[in-house]
C-alpha cells in the first residue's frame, strides 16, 4: 500500500486540489490552495535539482576513487562543483566572498568562467549546425526545397548585408518575410504545435491524476 497506493493518492489529491482551486477567487481559502501548492512544488522541485547535483557528485567521486579512465578530469568537475557551490551556500554576513552578491566567489566564477564558457559552447555549435546543414539540406523534394529556401532567405534577412541584397530585388522581400513568413506561416505552425502539445499534456495529466499513468514511479 505504501509503495503504490499512497503515491497514487498523493498525485490524485494534489492534482484535484489544484484543479478545484482554479475555479475559486485567490482571496478565498480554496482559491489560495493553488498558490500554496505552487510554492510547495517549487520547494520540492528545488530539492530535485539538488538531488541531480548530488548524483553527479557521487558518480564522479566513484570514478575518482576507483581511478577509472579520465579520473583526473572528473576530479576537476568535483573541484569546480565545490568551488562554486560552497561559497554560495555560506552566509554573505560571514564574508563578502560568500553568498551570491557581486564581489563573491560565486559571482566571479559565474561572470569570468561559467558565462563566457557557455557562450563559447553555443558559439561552437554554429560550426556544427552549418556543417550538419551542408550535409542534410539537399533540394531533393518539394518539402526539403521549401525548408532550404526559407532558411537561406531568413539567414540573409537577419544580417544587414543580406537585407541590403534582398532589397535589390523588386517587391519588399524583408517586409514580406516579416509579415507572411514569420507572422503568418511560422506563427500558424507554432500555434498548431502549441495547441497539439497542450492537448496532449492535458490528456496525459488526466491519466496521471486518475492513477492510470504510473510509469513515473519506476519499477519495484
Amino acid at each position: 500500500m505504501l509503495k503504490t497506493t499512497v503515491p497514487v493518492g498523493v498525485a490524485f489529491l494534489s492534482g484535484i486540489a489544484l484543479m478545484v482551486s482554479f475555479f475559486f477567487r485567490e482571496n478565498t481559502f480554496v482559491g489560495s490552495i493553488s498558490q500554496d501548492l505552487k510554492i510547495w512544488l517549487t520547494i520540492v522541485g528545488g530539492f530535485t535539482l539538488l538531488l541531480g547535483v548530488v548524483s553527479i557528485t557521487r558518480v564522479n567521486w566513484q570514478a575518482v576513487k576507483n581511478r577509472k579512465e579520465g579520473w583526473g578530469y572528473k576530479l576537476l568537475t568535483l573541484v569546480s562543483i565545490f568551488a562554486m557551490a560552497i561559497p554560495a551556500i555560506l552566509p554573505a554576513s560571514w564574508s563578502p566572498l560568500f553568498g551570491r552578491n557581486p564581489g563573491s566567489i560565486y559571482h566571479w566564477l559565474f561572470t569570468y568562467l561559467d558565462s563566457p564558457m557557455m557562450a563559447t559552447m553555443f558559439a561552437t555549435l554554429a560550426f556544427y549546425i552549418a556543417s550538419a546543414a551542408y550535409r542534410a539540406f539537399r533540394a531533393r523534394t518539394a518539402e526539403s526545397t521549401i525548408l532550404l529556401l526559407t532558411a537561406t532567405v531568413v539567414m540573409l534577412w537577419r544580417v544587414p548585408m543580406g537585407e541590403a541584397f534582398l532589397n535589390l530585388f523588386p517587391g519588399n522581400i524583408p517586409e514580406f518575410l516579416n509579415t507572411y513568413v514569420m507572422n503568418g506561416a511560422n506563427l500558424a505552425v507554432q500555434r498548431g504545435i502549441i495547441i497539439g502539445a497542450a492537448l496532449g499534456a492535458a490528456s496525459m495529466s488526466l491519466r496521471i491524476i486518475l492513477g492510470i499513468e504510473r510509469t513515473y514511479m519506476g519499477k519495484g
Partner: peptide, 9 residues
Amino acid sequence: HIFAGLSAG
C-alpha cells in the same frame, strides 16, 4: 569538465 562542474555548482 570545469564548465560542467561550474554549471552544476
